[in-house]
């Protein structure tokens, strides 16, 4: 998630064939106090976030805020329309018929929360149409698990011996 803001970064990275081996390697790196820049995997790996010291995502806060906006939009919107703007009697019910508003309020809550969270997520990650993100290796979107180090933060020889000792199948360097 941090790569989007980095430019011309010298990276040394190792590829692993299995997520369990990669998890052990992360534990080993923590033990050796090697400063991991980031870890890439084709799918979410259980237990990786706490090892990397990542905080829980705050995306759901955005979800709640957008959802509440949807609730208010729908409820206040219908209230205004059916009591002030264009009052119509439906089925002999009062103008302000709360039970009838609830399904639509619910739908707009879900819609706002869903769209709002997608937009928030894309914005934070710097994703979207027309955006190119630097990547280290094609195969980390397929079947490889990658641990990457920023060369300016670590001693490259120490990292290479670390990769060799933890079972990395490949070690490469790249500037992204």
């Amino acid at each position: 998630m941090r790569t989007a803001s980095h430019k011309n970064l010298d990276v040394v990275y190792g590829l692993y064939d299995d997520e369990e081996i990669m998890l052990d390697a992360v534990r080993q790196a923590n033990k050796e106090h090697l400063d991991i820049m980031d870890v890439y995997s084709p799918f979410p790996v259980h237990g990786l976030d706490p090892l990397l010291g990542l905080e829980e995502s705050r995306l759901h806060v955005a979800g709640f805020v957008f959802g509440a906006m949807g609730t208010l939009t729908a409820f206040l919107g219908m209230t205004w329309i059916f009591t002030k703007d264009w009052p119509i009697i439906f089925g002999g019910k009062p103008y302000w018929s709360v039970p009838a508003f609830i399904p639509i309020t619910f739908e707009l809550t879900v819609l706002f929360a869903a769209i709002g969270m997608v937009v928030t997520f894309y914005t934070i990650c710097g994703l979207g149409p027309g955006v190119t993100n630097p990547y280290l290796d094609d195969r980390i979107t397929d079947d490889k698990f990658c641990i990457a180090f920023d060369k300016s933060n670590v001693d490259v020889s120490a990292v290479e011996s670390f990769f060799a000792s933890t079972g990395a199948s490949e070690v490469n360097q790249k500037t992204i």
């Binding site: 089925g91 002999g92 019910k93 039970p99 009838a100 609830i102 399904p103």
Partner: peptide
């Protein structure tokens, strides 16, 4: 609960 209530309320 609400679906049962609303259908009955609406049909009246």
């Amino acid at each position: 609960w609400f679906s049962q209530f609303m259908l009955i309320w609406y049909a009246n």
